[in-house]
Design a protein around this nucleic acid. Structure first.
Lengths: 215, 215
DNA sequence: CTGGAACCGTACCGTACGGTACGCCTCTGC
DNA sequence: GCAGAGGCGTACCGTACGGTACGGTTCCAG
């Protein structure tokens, strides 16, 4: 029931991190067809060491995902002096970071791996990705939204609803299309439109929830 | 390059459809851990027959996904006499069908399977799912939106942007969370909120794109 | 009745891969 | 120098699964 996400940094040694890097590279290259032998060869270590350090294949996968996912960082926002302009800038920053992250190959690989795992009744990877992806965004964004509401810059009854609207306006169908391997949606293709999309999403969000809706 | 989605119904015989049903059931139960032996046993047929009919494991998977995905139907909407009320009803119907479909176990399974495949440089399944999911919605929704714009009910410069906004407002983070196996998001849990979410999404979309924005 | 096509069930083969065992090297503390 | 720990490389084992082969049964055409 409890997510049991590791809070301590789990402190991997540099050597272990090199192994995890190799695993991630192979994951990005070959998808979930990751073999222990391949990781051992790529990282120049023995399989025995892999099993000693990570227990089994799932442990290695979990460590890799966990270690990478934890690298995702949401922007810090100064909540002390919020005004219309600062709020807009913060929202745009959130949207930009969110989009930039989730169109990256690493994010796509991690999400695909976790989804593949979720298809086998194992939800641990999915929980890790969720916790470091959508939930991290939510944890960071909600206080901002609520602060902005207290400052009469935003108007909403449920901050949960407001967060989900923001998420939807920013992500749209981009992530699912990338996960499914949409040919017409190359990374560079999306990347070049990020700024425009960020602005559109922010404008729309402010139009819906901004206190001065009729400005 | 071309998607080469099969247009003809491919006309599977009833016996073949029974096999595909068995395959889908196993897919839903066991995830992508689908084995030819299991399908043969479940469908009471021989493996030789499976290979004869579908070529190989991928062929069976493709046939299953194709056959199921084609069953998804978007609502028909009467474009002839659009008014504010009819437009709202149409949008709500789209939102309801979209949400209902993609929280279903079949949809989740199909998407997971296609994503797992996309992680192995095979985009055929992904294309099938895309074509029968998001792209089908787009094909159906865009003409409505444009008709509504012609009738001065909606205001937008790009129908593509309007469609993507609608998609985002409706789907939000629901699909990705379900795909990742979010524990806090059971199907029934979401299902009970569909009507409320549909209304919210439609209201928001009309607030953004409705011609009478200040009503 | 007979030949053959379609298909079921099962046995079988080859391989890929997770996991283990072991020999050898290197580095460190005493 | 020496013992032991940590780790590399490789060989090995067991199994699961994709794919094939084959004997037996049913059904239909002529």
């Amino acid at each position: 029931m409890a997510l049991a996400i590791k809070v301590s940094e789990e402190t991997f040694t540099p050597r272990q991190q090199a192994v995890l890097t190799a695993a991630l590279d192979l994951l990005v290259e070959n998808g979930d067809g990751l073999t222990m032998t391949a990781v051992a060869r790529r990282a120049s270590c023995s399989k025995e060491t892999l099993y000693k350090w990570f227990g089994d294949r799932d442990g290695l996968l979990t460590a890799t995902v966990q270690w990478q996912a934890a690298k995702v960082r949401m922007p810090y926002v100064d909540r002390s002096h919020l005004n219309t302009k600062a709020l807009r800038a913060s929202l745009e920053q959130f949207a930009r970071d969110l989009l930039t992250t989730l169109i990256g190959e690493v994010s796509i690989t991690l999400n695909r791996t976790a989804i593949t795992h979720a298809a086998q009744e194992k939800d641990s990877l999915g929980n890790i990705v969720l916790e470091n992806g959508p939930m991290a965004v939510r944890r960071r964004l909600k206080p901002i939204l609520e602060a902005a509401r207290d400052a009469r810059l935003l108007r909403f009854s449920s901050s949960e609803e407001a967060y989900r609207t923001f998420f939807g306006l920013v992500v749209r169908d981009v992530q699912i299309r990338l996960l499914l391997g949409d040919n017409g949606l190359t990374q560079s293709n999306v990347e070049s439109n990020i700024e425009a999309d960020v602005k559109i999403a922010t404008d729309q969000f402010l139009a819906l929830y901004g206190a001065k809706a009729n400005t």
